[in-house]
């Protein structure tokens, strides 16, 4: 945000110092730059609308979605039952088909991976992992409104899947 503010300030300063603008080419250049800035700010803000903490419909976990290198990832940050009732120890990813992962704690586990923003409130190209059965599904995320996500995990074709609704969480005020 700092750099965007700097950019805008510089543009305004440039416009003020060179006013009136006589050259049509100059006008075109400035409008193009302004358009790039405005649209990139808007696109980035739309893309980041997914960032935050979310609660799936079953209410068993909270998932925090972050942006890392232009992609979006979600990790489990809270569990309704943090401990395994059989062992009394923190739950691990015991259903993972990769045995080397079965001791990894579920809290902190990245269950959403590699989502890219495609515009119109849609994030695709990512996967969702279900710790209950150790299965990874293809996934598409739709932003229904600023506090609601529709997350669809599917197999191959989107029709072979199921949609869950997630609600945005915030710290209690």
């Amino acid at each position: 945000m700092m750099t965007s503010a700097l950019t805008l300030l510089y543009l305004l300063k440039y416009l003020r110092e060179n006013n009136p603008i006589n050259s049509i080419k100059m006008k075109y250049t400035i409008y193009t730059i302004a358009f790039c800035i405005v649209t990139s700010i808007g696109f980035a803000q739309d893309a980041d609308a997914i960032v935050g903490v979310w609660k799936p419909s079953n209410g068993k976990v909270y998932v925090k979605i972050d942006k890392i290198d232009d992609k979006y990832y979600g990790k489990i940050v809270w569990l309704k039952e943090p401990n395994d009732p059989e062992t009394g120890k923190p739950k691990t990813d015991k259903n993972n088909p990769d045995e080397s992962m079965q001791d990894v704690p579920l809290r902190g586990y990245r269950m959403l991976k590699d989502f890219e923003y495609k515009g119109d409130g849609v994030w695709e190209e990512g996967t969702i992992y279900d710790p209950q059965n150790g299965t990874t599904y293809d996934c598409v995320i739709n932003l229904k409104d600023e506090n609601t996500l529709n997350i669809r995990g599917y197999v191959g074709l989107k029709t072979f899947g199921r949609t869950d609704t997630w609600k945005r969480l915030q710290k209690k005020t």
Binding site: M1, K55, K67, D69, W78, G108, L169, Q170, K171
Partner: peptide
Amino acid sequence: LLGSFQFSLAQDDGEEEEDYSIYDDFEVV
């Protein structure tokens, strides 16, 4: 400047350890 602005948007939030206990006090918006 525009390029650096876009680059800054893509910065990694990092993998630093979190204090997960803060999420005990979250509620639905």
